[in-house]
Structure formats: structure tokens, C-alpha cells
């Protein structure tokens, strides 16, 4: 086959697939969001935004992202640098730390339910050390902060691994000579981390943050498992519009709102961590 057409033949299946199952439904969602009663309108958006639960679910989603992502970033950076200077047992430690990568958000929610439920392990432990006499029901509407904490912990537990993998791969690409040079110039380990690792890691940081932030806005199953309806987030509201209220227009509008927030966050991250042209490794 002619080498000029071959690449197009090879990418045709993906392109076709993404057009049918990505671009086309996307256009449908957008269209549905702006349609009500057969005409173009902002009615769906007005409806979902004016709902009393919208500010709460938006606030919950953003708060969760703001609480979870920085902790994950710090933790992933710490783990990545620790693994980087490890001589023995590197593979085993990395395997253990990346286990959560394969665990679904639903399973993670269930795992942390085992800890936070009334007869769960947290209460049992507190009992064992004598802090409490009888098990308290932690995941209730009286304890919104505990619900929040449980969800945040489950998310940090589950999804730090993906950042870790990206950062470990990125650190692996930084040539050792830079550190040796810095050492010769008298930079401490901390200074080396600040002045070499972090700046050269920017492309990986970009990828890791974009991916994580977007996924943080899509948080759903962890919340469903731990908070149920106690802790509404944007995705659970979307799900509720579609299934409980059977209002596809409103669900589509919610979807577009989540998309808008995701795009805005992506742009901010890309801008904040942009790499000057020619300054790559």
C-alpha cells in the first residue's frame, strides 16, 4: 500500500469510532441541553442552577477537589522522590503503592465504608484504645465533616496512584547528570528538588494535574457508597436528573456545566505550568 495513504487507513478506525461514540453524542448532549419544548433556550440551565441543591453540590464538588488534589500531589511527589532514591525493593514498593490504580471508585468507597460505618473498624479501634464507649454512627447528616473526610480520604487513598505513576515516569526521564552537576555546585537535596526536579517535571505535573482535576469533578461512586444522598455532588445530581426525575434536558445541562468547569480548570493548569519553548529535556 502507498505509504502516503497508509497512516490515514490506520487512524481511520479510531477516528470513526470517536466520531460516532464521542463527537456525535457530545453534539447531542449540547443540543439537548439548549433545547426545551422544541426551541433553543437556556431554560435547562436556569432550572438546574436555580435548584436548591445546585449550590451545595457545586460547593461540595469544588471543596472536595480543592482538598483532595493538593494532598494527592504532595503525596505523589513525596512517594515518587522516595522511590527514585530507593535501591532495594523498589519494584515491590512501587507495586504496593500502585495497587489502588486498579481499584474502582465504587470499590474504594466500599472499602472505606468498612472503616467508617457504625460497626466499622474506626469505631472498633477507638473502642480498643478506650476513647469511646459505644459505637457512634459517623456517616450521618449530623456529621457532615466526617462524611466529607471519609470521602476525601477514600479519594486520596484511591487516586494518588495515577499521579504517582505519571510522576515516577517523568522523574525517570530527568538525566542524573543534572543532579550531579547541582551537587557539585553545592545544592542541597531540598534545593535540588526545588530547582531541578520540579521545573523539569512540569510536563508530567501538567498531565497528572489535568487528569486528576477532571476526574475529581467527576467524582460519583465514592460519594454514592459513603455519603449516599447526604453529600450531593455534580455527578450524582446529573444521575438523579436522568433517573429519578427523568429530566434528560436538565441532566444534559448539568453535563455541560461539569464540562465547562473541567475545561476552565484544564486551561488554568496548562497556563500555570506552561513550559517555555525549547526548555524541554
Amino acid at each position: 500500500m502507498n505509504a502516503r495513504f497508509l497512516p490515514y487507513v490506520l487512524i481511520a478506525p479510531v477516528t470513526f469510532f470517536l466520531c460516532v461514540f464521542f463527537l456525535y453524542p457530545f453534539v447531542l448532549v449540547a443540543n439537548q441541553a439548549f433545547t426545551a419544548d422544541g426551541g433553543y433556550t437556556m431554560e435547562n440551565f436556569r432550572e438546574v442552577v436555580s435548584d436548591w441543591k445546585f449550590p451545595i453540590s457545586l460547593q461540595n464538588t469544588l471543596l472536595l477537589a480543592a482538598a483532595v488534589v493538593p494532598v494527592q500531589l504532595a503525596l505523589a511527589l513525596l512517594m515518587a522522590t522516595m522511590v527514585n532514591r530507593m535501591q532495594k525493593g523498589r519494584d515491590l514498593i512501587l507495586y504496593v503503592w500502585t495497587i489502588p490504580l486498579g481499584i474502582s471508585d465504587l470499590a474504594a468507597g466500599i472499602i472505606w465504608l468498612a472503616i467508617f460505618e457504625q460497626s466499622g473498624f474506626l469505631n472498633s479501634m477507638l473502642d480498643a484504645v478506650g476513647v469511646i464507649d459505644k459505637p457512634a454512627n459517623l456517616l450521618t447528616y449530623q456529621n457532615p465533616w466526617i462524611v466529607f473526610l471519609a470521602i476525601a480520604l477514600a479519594e486520596i487513598w484511591r487516586a494518588t496512584a495515577i499521579m504517582l505513576v505519571i510522576l515516577v515516569a517523568g522523574i525517570g526521564l530527568i538525566p542524573k547528570e543534572y543532579y550531579e552537576a547541582a551537587e557539585v555546585f553545592g545544592a542541597s537535596k531540598w534545593k535540588q528538588f526545588l530547582r531541578i526536579t520540579l521545573p523539569l517535571l512540569r510536563p508530567s505535573l501538567q498531565t497528572a494535574l489535568v487528569l486528576r482535576v477532571i476526574l475529581a469533578f467527576e467524582i460519583f461512586a465514592v460519594v454514592a457508597a459513603l455519603g449516599g444522598t447526604l453529600f450531593p455532588v455534580l455527578m450524582s445530581e446529573t444521575y438523579a436528573y436522568q433517573f429519578d426525575l427523568l429530566n434528560s434536558g436538565a441532566a444534559a445541562a448539568m453535563a455541560l456545566i461539569i464540562l465547562g468547569i473541567s475545561i476552565a480548570a484544564t486551561l488554568v493548569i496548562l497556563r500555570a505550568l506552561r513550559v517555555p519553548k525549547g526548555a524541554t529535556i
Partner: peptide
Amino acid sequence: LLILLTRAFPLPLLALPLAVM
């Protein structure tokens, strides 16, 4: 760009119109 776009999009949301389709 198309590939990256799909990665940067809350894909499960597309399940809604796909259900209709």
C-alpha cells in the same frame, strides 16, 4: 488533539445521549 480531548472530557456523561441512540 482529538485523542487528548477525549482524555480531558468527562466521558461517562456521554452515556446519556448514547442511551437514546
